[in-house]
């Protein structure tokens, strides 16, 4: 099962288009769009009423809340509606597919600047703690007026707790900056130009998430996410290798003793 989400910022508007079909299958009828939001330390499930046609649900900027998460389920799975949950669940298997089931997350500006990517947040990822390592120079641009990382975390427990993110120079073994981040939140991190060079990584401690990079130059935008490190290694040692890499970052944090 996949969740979908959007981004909110004073710098741009954002729409989400959720398809009613898998890449390789015909349109599925009787699909509904739901949203989950945290209320009183519980996940509350509501049906989303939005513009839709035979192919898609269209969520416009004005109806989107940055921290709400969205998912698809069939009418027959309506028993979840208006209920409260202590944990996110695998509410519907419809979006289990290969290739991965994705929505289109688009950001745009009044004069026409626009950028999008096919986005999803897998349910399995919400169940895990861990860390992410993302090299920032791959998707940040010094020529841009603004460079941001939107770090989206979805955690299965309906809790909003603090954790830390870091900018780390991997070669010099220096922590350049430390940020306070929140779980179940779209965290916005402004990246200064002085940090955009080859060896700098964005690293999080204890919570997974998707680092989404936004670059803005006047009326132009770019939006894309980095891959998790385990997608670069396909051999059976992949998790060992990724753990070794992450261990190096933890060592750097430990040695720098940043408070």
């Amino acid at each position: 099962m996949n969740f979908f989400f959007s981004l909110k910022s004073r710098y741009f508007r954002s729409d989400l288009i959720v398809p009613k079909f898998k890449n390789r299958k015909p349109i599925s009828k009787n699909l509904l769009l739901f949203k989950a939001q945290i209320k009183n330390k519980l996940w509350q499930i509501k049906k989303v009423n939005c513009v839709n046609n035979k192919n898609f649900f269209f969520l416009k900027d004005r109806v989107i809340n940055s921290n709400d998460i969205y998912f698809l389920a069939f009418k027959s799975e309506l028993s979840i509606l208006n209920k409260e949950f202590k944990e996110l669940q695998n509410f519907s298997t419809f979006t289990n597919s290969s290739p991965a089931f994705r929505s289109n997350l688009k950001i745009y500006l009044p004069k026409g600047g626009v950028s999008s990517y096919q986005s999803e947040y897998p349910f399995d990822m919400t169940k895990k703690n861990g860390s992410i390592a993302s090299p920032i120079s791959l998707l940040s641009q010094k020529i841009a007026d603004k460079n941001f990382i939107f770090f989206k975390n979805i955690f299965y427990k309906p809790i909003i707790v603090n954790f830390y993110g870091y900018l780390i120079d991997y070669t010099k073994k220096i922590v350049l900056k430390k940020f306070l981040l929140k779980s179940n939140t779209t965290n916005i991190i402004n990246i200064e130009n002085k940090y955009i060079y080859s060896d700098v990584y964005f690293f999080t401690d204890n919570f997974l998430g998707i680092p989404i990079y936004v670059n803005k130059l006047r009326e132009h935008l770019s939006l894309e996410h980095t891959h998790p490190p385990h997608e670069y290694v396909l051999s059976s040692d992949k998790f060992n290798r990724v753990n070794l890499l992450k261990h190096k970052f933890y060592e750097i944090i430990k040695q720098n003793k940043i408070k």
């Binding site: 288009i17 398809p19 079909f21 890449n23 390789r24 192919n55 289109n104 999008s116």
Partner: peptide, 13 residues
């Protein structure tokens, strides 16, 4: 016999 349908409505463009 392989279908691939893009999961986006591109009429915005």
């Amino acid at each position: 016999n392989q279908l691939y349908k893009v999961q986006n409505d591109c009429s915005f463009y």
